[in-house]
């Protein structure tokens, strides 16, 4: 990946990291209400994969969706206002952290259920002959849901232009993968006749390359593809619910996808990206704070 290509992707990862850290800080300060699921440590997946699709393609994400939204739209203001329940949020504050929609981007908060919906979207685009593809993000925890396998069968049977991206972040909420998942993640899809690939989800360049190949295949062949990206959730599942041993987290930080880019991005560029992200997110928070809350319809 050339430095010219890398710089904006790195900056977007920094934006996502800073956004998610701010979200947790706002919860700690009591400024956010409800719950959230941050993607700390998984920024390379969001940015690497979604740098390879167009805004015309359909993307369906899950409860852990902030990074996907920011990777596609670069809109911390709209997302922050949504999280803060304001009218200026991208769904008027109604959807909140897990229920986002803009243009061809959708999210929902129930594990697995989004997968057949995304397949239906891929089927719609195939039916309309638009050349668009659908991308659905799921996690290793989602693989416990039966509807995922119903959908794998349908996607293969009907040759749907659907890219499954499995963000294997090591956990189903608090349960480590070893305690909740048998067998191979890639072999699951291979058994349904899908082409698969697996790679390091914390290596931005590797993710982008794998995603480029996968997207090209799905678009060219009008067939589904199963892309497994191994990553690690550095933050808690939602807010304060983290009981992992300190030494495990310490080891994980050595694989931090942002830290791994330090050798490839200049120190001034890193500093500039952080400064810019902080300023934009501070502005997003400030704007949301003064934006009106929605009022209930009479």
């Amino acid at each position: 990946m050339s430095p010219e290509t890398l710089a904006p992707l790195h900056a977007r990862m920094v934006l996502i990291r800073t956004f998610e850290e701010s979200v947790l800080a706002l919860f700690a300060q009591g400024e956010l209400f409800g719950t959230t699921h941050t993607c700390l440590g998984q920024e390379a997946v969001a940015v690497g994969v979604l740098s390879q699709v167009t805004r015309d393609d359909v993307v369906f994400s899950n409860h852990r969706c902030h990074g996907h939204y920011l990777a596609l739209f670069d809109d911390p203001a709209g997302l922050m206002a949504e999280l803060m329940g304001r009218t200026t949020g991208l769904c008027g504050g109604v959807g909140g952290s897990q229920h986002l929609h803009r243009e061809n981007f959708y999210t929902n908060g129930v594990q697995g259920g989004i997968v057949p919906c995304a397949a239906g979207m891929a089927l719609a685009e195939k039916f309309k002959k638009t050349g668009r593809i659908a991308v659905v993000f799921l996690g290793d925890g989602t693989l416990g849901e039966g509807v995922v396998y119903e959908t794998l069968n349908l996607a293969s049977l009907w040759q749907l232009p659907l890219l499954f991206v499995v963000e294997a972040n090591g956990f189903a909420q608090s349960t480590p993968t070893a305690l909740q998942l048998a067998g191979s993640i890639t072999q699951r899809a291979a058994a349904f006749g899908l082409r698969t690939a697996e790679g390091d989800g914390n290596d931005l360049a590797a993710v982008a390359t794998l995603a480029a190949d996968a997207v090209a295949y799905v678009r060219r062949e009008t067939k589904p593809f199963w892309l497994v990206l191994n990553t690690y959730r550095l933050g808690p599942h939602s807010k304060g619910d983290d009981h992992r041993p300190a030494e495990e987290l310490l080891r994980a930080h050595e694989r931090d996808p942002l830290a791994r880019l330090c050798a490839r991005v200049t120190a001034p560029a890193i500093a500039a990206a952080k400064t810019d992200a902080r300023a934009r997110i501070a502005a997003a928070i400030a704007a949301a704070r003064v934006a009106p809350f929605p009022t209930a319809a009479a």
């Binding site: 057949p116 239906g120 089927l123 039966g146 959908t151 349908l154």
Partner: peptide, 14 residues
């Protein structure tokens, strides 16, 4: 479950 979900996706896309 899958066919109802697929129908939901079809409907969201027009």
């Amino acid at each position: 479950a899958a066919i109802v979900g697929v129908a939901g996706g079809l409907a969201l896309r027009g």
